[in-house]
């Protein structure tokens, strides 16, 4: 299970990655992350929305209220072009961390 700090640090790039596949809303985003991570990434669900709102304030996602098929009002989020660029940069940074860890792991195992 990922630590709370790691979950917090990875929340923005993960949210943007889900939205890169297309428009979505909060509950669907959480369900998608839970399914893909096999339950390894456990978010406190209420924490997701402030992160989405901050991404919106930064211009990385945009949101619209629409009526869902249930008849309830629902807020849908979509990645902006600035968001796509930011996601590419985040992915590159995470890849570098991953590659470094991978490269160092054999040394740690031998030690």
């Amino acid at each position: 299970m990922a630590s709370r700090k790691l979950v917090a640090a990875s929340s923005a790039p993960i949210l943007m990655s889900v939205l890169a596949a297309g428009e979505s809303y909060g509950y669907a985003i959480i369900s998608r992350v839970r399914a893909v991570s096999g339950g390894e990434l456990q978010w406190t669900e209420g924490m997701l929305y402030p992160v989405l709102h901050r991404l919106e304030q930064q211009g990385l996602v945009e949101a619209t209220w629409r009526t869902a098929e249930t008849g309830r009002q629902r807020r849908y989020y979509r990645l902006t072009s600035a968001g796509k660029k930011a996601l590419a940069e985040e992915r590159a940074a995470w890849d570098r961390v991953h590659d470094t860890l991978q490269a160092l792991t054999p040394e740690v195992s031998r030690a």
Binding site: G26, E45, A68, R75
Partner: peptide, 9 residues
């Protein structure tokens, strides 16, 4: 927004 989330859940 949180209530919509709760209803889905």
């Amino acid at each position: 927004e949180l209530l919509d989330h709760l209803h889905c859940s």
